[in-house]
Design a protein around this nucleic acid. Sequence first.
DNA 1: GCAAGTAGTTACCTAAAGGTAAGTATTGAG
DNA 2: CTCAATACTTACCTTTAGGTAACTACTTGC
Lengths: 123, 123
Amino acid sequence: MTARNDHTQCPMESILGQIMGPWTPYILWLLDNEKTLRFGEIAARIPGISAKVLTDRLRKLEASNLIHRDYRPTVPPTVSYSLTARGAELHSVLQGLNEVAIRWDEEDRETQGAPDTETIAAG
Amino acid sequence: MTARNDHTQCPMESILGQIMGPWTPYILWLLDNEKTLRFGEIAARIPGISAKVLTDRLRKLEASNLIHRDYRPTVPPTVSYSLTARGAELHSVLQGLNEVAIRWDEEDRETQGAPDTETIAAG
DNA sequence: GCAAGTAGTTACCTAAAGGTAAGTATTGAG
DNA sequence: CTCAATACTTACCTTTAGGTAACTACTTGC
């Protein structure tokens, strides 16, 4: 209210706008785990994504200075992606989120269905 | 392929599907900070959101067992929201993300503009 | 001259998400 | 009888996002 507008006073909204989106945190997590991945390798690790959307996400992450794009003009061309120093700062958040995800996944497996039979996919 | 489908083998995608979305992590972070908030209070803290979208986010978070809905049939009715035990498990992730957000915000302020004058809100 | 291979880009179309506004329930005040 | 208040819900419409498929560039191999 006093110096900045009310919707930018909170840095959370800014970072959310950068890393949110259907596949964005997942891409960051992949790069955090595997250090360097080529375009096709990322696409292979995300079954449902299209080249158009993946390109879009990559461009936006690059524009936010979270990933680095390494283009090698070979034939055919090779493009590798990796986290920047800023992108690497998300490491603990990404890994923390993954730990919670794994925990919940185990809990839901105990509660909702037997580990050896598939009942959730029946409906 | 053997027991689970290939897109659910990674718990990250599951948790992302639950907490992702335009305002979802922000709502969780508000409730993590303020413990209990009424519908109108959440709406007031998120300037750009509409009642329809806020209701949708709240319902989905409730369905994921991340928030608790407390309906008091007073006149007019009072509805309060708070994190469930599971939702509270996101505390460190949410706060860690906020710390990174604040750090980046300060860094960007040093790089892109002077700290004492407002140049970003001029346009 | 055509296919293959990588990493895209572009055009076109459809599906989903979100905005706006009005309606719902309840009861006390006027 | 109507207004006001809270927390929605629903209908309708627009905007946006995403899917699909074709095209680009360049060189090797046939």
